[in-house]
Amino acid sequence: MSVPAPAPIRHLYVHVPFCPSICPYCDFHVLTRQSGLVEQYLAQVEREAERLAAEYPVELDTVYLGGGTPSFLRDSEMAALVGSVQRWLGWGRAENTLEINPGTVSAERAAHWRALGFDRASVGVQSLHDPTLLFLGRRHSAAQARAAVEHLLAREFRVSGDLITAVAGQPLEADIRGLHELGVGHISAYTLTIEPGTEFARRGVTVSEADERRGFEVTAALLAELGYERYEISNYARPGQQSQHNLAYWHTRHYLGLGPGAAGHYPAAAPAVSMRRTNPHLHEWLAGAQGEAELVTGHDWVTDALFMGLRLRTGVNLAELSRRSGVDVAREYAPAIRANVERGLLVQEGQQLQATEAGWWILNSVIGDFLELDLARP
């Protein structure tokens, strides 16, 4: 009896760590460019892409270039990076996203990126209010952000605009309406979070719970009024504008991670359900280090899948989680499900489990109830 071929991996994340400057709230693996580093990065991307192609069957549906500031790469550098990806791994059949800083966009560059094969742009607008941008350490202006979106839409990109909420003094409603009036089909709205080790943390910047709650509620209400569907806690889309790549994350699909600091989620042999691997930071990665691999077993995989899947409006299907993990999810996690349904934080209809808006607000606490059951297992 022949063994079935492993299913191909259909999603690729590429990390570009270079930024023109480091924002005071950022805790990603980013650095300013230095002489020779980009050239070394591009050469190592080629080698790693070749290795991934040899190790896994790949038929890409989505590609996502994130960072960092991928659009900070010069045109020739971007062409080389895309060439390496396409040569060894192919290109996304459904969606190819480029993260873009508004200050890097011109009509000519938008045309160049479109010609390379990108069809979706995730633009780090953050705000359309210059004082808010100044506080956030952004180097672009509101006018530059508007012009960037217009250039990209003119080249028929599907455009997503990022907003940061819960900034004191931010005119949030004006920011939201401004993006809507520009014509973006997707908006990602994230609460300003002060992470340890960032400049904001060192400066003692805080975010009030009142501002956080207001941002959460105003964003949801106004974007619903404007015709955007909230399909994930922080993401809103017009029909057909959902991020197919990010949906792969939230549905716990396998994906390749390429580049320094990039995370990947890979198939694994039983009894493991999958393997997660995060690449080391730039200098170790340039030396050929591959990072540590972590095998994910049944119950750990389930709690990961719940944490990701309950972020979605549609939630998770318990039977599907059981099939993929080998764990009877409905039975083994029944106490956590029942308790959170009674508290109004989850809703269960048959095998479908969804978070309510109240549950979204404290999702970490909800998932904590599932983790407690894992910790209590013999």
Rank of each mutant, 00 (worst) to 15 (best):
L179K: 07
L222K: 02
D300A: 11
A330Q: 09
S84Q: 15
E294W: 01
D162C: 02
G36L: 11
L42V: 11
V327W: 02
P196A: 08
G326Q: 03
G259L: 03
L52P: 11
L128D: 10
L12M: 07
R177K: 07
Y236A: 05
A148Q: 00
E50C: 13
N246T: 13
L318V: 10
E59L: 09
W88H: 15
Q44A: 15
P102V: 01
C26I: 06
G315R: 12
V82T: 15
S106R: 08
R155D: 00
S243L: 12
F200C: 05
A358D: 14
G204F: 14
Y228H: 09
S76H: 14
A268R: 10
L134P: 00
A269L: 12
H140F: 06
F28T: 08
V327M: 09
E209F: 01
G350E: 08
T314M: 06
L363Y: 01
L310A: 05
R114T: 09
H140D: 10
L52T: 06
E173I: 00
S35R: 15
D27Q: 06
R311N: 08
V45R: 03
A189D: 00
A53V: 04
N235T: 09
R238F: 11
G90Q: 09
L318Y: 05
V125K: 01
E99L: 01
V159Y: 00
S76F: 04
H299Q: 05
E357C: 00
W91H: 11
P17S: 07
Q126E: 10
E349Q: 14
P260W: 04
A221F: 00
R230C: 11
C26S: 07
E156W: 02
L222Y: 03
L42R: 08
V341R: 14
A53L: 02
V273S: 02
E292M: 11
A330Y: 03
